[in-house]
Design a protein around this nucleic acid. Sequence first.
DNA 1: GCTATCCGATAGCTACGCTATCCACGTGCG
DNA 2: CGCACGTGGATAGCGTAGCTATCGGATAGC
Lengths: 216, 216
Amino acid sequence: MRISELSRTTGVSIASIKYYIREGVLAPGEVDGPNRSTYGDAHAARLRLVRGLVEGAGVSIAGVKRITAALDGGMPLNDAFGVAQAAVPLAGATTSEEPSEEAVERILAVVEGIGRFHPAIPIAARALDTFAVVGEPLSEKWLARYAEAAAIVARADFDELEERSDPAAQARIAAVGTALGDVVFQSLRRIAHATEGERRFPSPPASPSSDQETSS
Amino acid sequence: MRISELSRTTGVSIASIKYYIREGVLAPGEVDGPNRSTYGDAHAARLRLVRGLVEGAGVSIAGVKRITAALDGGMPLNDAFGVAQAAVPLAGATTSEEPSEEAVERILAVVEGIGRFHPAIPIAARALDTFAVVGEPLSEKWLARYAEAAAIVARADFDELEERSDPAAQARIAAVGTALGDVVFQSLRRIAHATEGERRFPSPPASPSSDQETSS
DNA sequence: GCTATCCGATAGCTACGCTATCCACGTGCG
DNA sequence: CGCACGTGGATAGCGTAGCTATCGGATAGC
């Protein structure tokens, strides 16, 4: 198919497709002549992946490029998630400020094994510091339950990965799952907040609009 | 204190402080004269909160403004998290594309009560759609475990909130916790991925650098 | 031939989060 | 008294990110 058809079937503008090709997140079409290129289903699939990561998970184009490069190059099984993690920076990774020793210790207290050397440790520690700086330090119990929940989803992620036998499929699940799993969890957490809030502090039964947006 | 001292004690440049005042996330100093204003500890605390949300959780200035407005105005207890949620948009909230019916049903199957009308539902559903579009749809078991983990952290969040008796402290915990809790969880999830990956696919014992960055 | 479309490159645009400059004023030190 | 310095307030600019619009040249199909 031609670029106009690719644009039509995916809903992505031609200009954007060209942009993605320029940025290296989408392979150029097969060149048939000086001004003639053909695109296949693989291009459409990749395009959907790119849009899903960018729109659905807020991954930057540079991050998408790293993910797709890893997908195309194949990744080692024991580090499938590690590669994806390196490609998708955490929200709090922009600062270079050092976390407090105490916060790092608190994080280390709830993780084990190889996790103790993970680059995400200082990010989590800085987040704890911010809670303290705002005047609302969090209890150990809170942190422990977060760690427990994180272990549950990590096991779920790996179980899902192990259901695939094809290494390429495993790589896809790891890459996409790292980015989109965050979004799914955040959404479910917010929904659970609403549910739990209603359970603990029931709203007056009169008007059933207890959310920030009077939903339909 | 004056603006220069405020800048020095918080590490935020004077220009940025002025910018925050302009944007309404920081109250102006008390005006003593035409070119003389005094800032207090409250300004320093607010400034640290702003930096924590912006740097630590990637919240936009507009989002911080909504959060601080809610903090200053007081929020209803049964919706403390709701207000914070509205102020901190999810990563995948930029698109307006409609999720598939099927994905919405799958989400609804794992949430209960008031959560069924939550604005985060379509976001989670779109994320599921993206997994499918990439060719790696996720199992019900995976989603159920995510929901279970989300319920655990939601309960932890509310327990933490209920430990405070001061409504202002509860509002702070809800607002900051919504944004920074995401960061803490994402970090712990990534750490857990490393731990779980090592458990399931042990790396060769020779070189202990099994992470994407040869850590120290 | 003529028109429509294509490819490729380049320049521009919008939003965001600052950052730098300018100005007039008033404090405070000598 | 005099004058440099810091201040508040306003405005303009900057750097990055993610597109988007336009241009030039070429060719396919009628």
